[in-house]
């Protein structure tokens, strides 16, 4: 009887350790997801801060591009706090792309130092946003694998862990904006 009890306790201890490992795995995957998501947010905020300077610089050289300038500012102002924040951010992305493309028609603007600096910063931020989104998607894949594969799915059900959604690039984002320096 004592031997059986001992074996039972050993099995219970092993199961407990395995349970802790699996649960901690979920927590680290969730943190990776949150971290990547927060990073997207930080980069979007950086872009948000750069846009007024970009608009001001472009305005100085390309007064006739009122429509493009206005649409970028409108998208930029609508993005934070919006229920469809990321859809709005996509509009900002597209607007910034159009704004940078405008420079092609204005040689003075294209060679302006302030504009070149902003352009580099925006390219940097866009690269960082893209990297953060890809990191987020990778973390989501990891998380979903945990939620759907055995034995993780037992924990997922017990702790109410649900599948997460990926970031998907919109059609407008898949189109490359040609920007030459």
């Amino acid at each position: 009887m004592i031997a059986t009890m001992k074996e039972f306790l050993i099995v219970l201890a092993i199961l407990l350790v395995l349970g802790v490992i699996i649960y901690n795995g979920f927590i680290s995957r969730r943190n990776a997801m949150r971290n990547a998501f927060a990073s997207i947010d930080v980069q979007l905020r950086k872009r948000w801060d750069l846009i007024p300077n970009l608009v001001e610089t472009v305005k100085g050289f390309a007064k006739h591009e009122k429509e493009v300038l206005a649409s970028v500012i409108a998208a930029r102002n609508a993005a934070p706090g919006s229920g469809e924040r990321f859809a709005k951010e996509d509009e900002v992305s597209a607007g910034v792309g159009r704004l940078l493309a405008v420079a092609e028609r204005y040689p003075d603007l294209k060679s302006n130092e302030q504009f070149l600096l902003l352009q580099r910063n925006l390219t940097e931020v866009e690269s960082q946003i893209s990297a953060s989104r890809r990191a987020f998607n990778s973390a989501v894949t990891d998380w979903n694998e945990g939620v759907e594969a055995f034995p993780g799915l037992l924990f997922a059900k017990a702790f109410n862990f649900e599948r997460a959604d990926w970031f998907e690039a919109r059609v407008s984002e898949r189109e490359n904006v040609e920007v030459s320096l």
């Binding site: 990776a32 971290n35 990547a36 990073s39 690269s127 960082q128 893209s130 990297a131 953060s132 890809r134 990191a135 990778s138 973390a139």
Partner: peptide, 10 residues
């Protein structure tokens, strides 16, 4: 760093 890894390895 997962984000830096993807920033480098586009």
């Amino acid at each position: 760093d997962a984000i830096e890894a993807r920033y480098i390895l586009t």
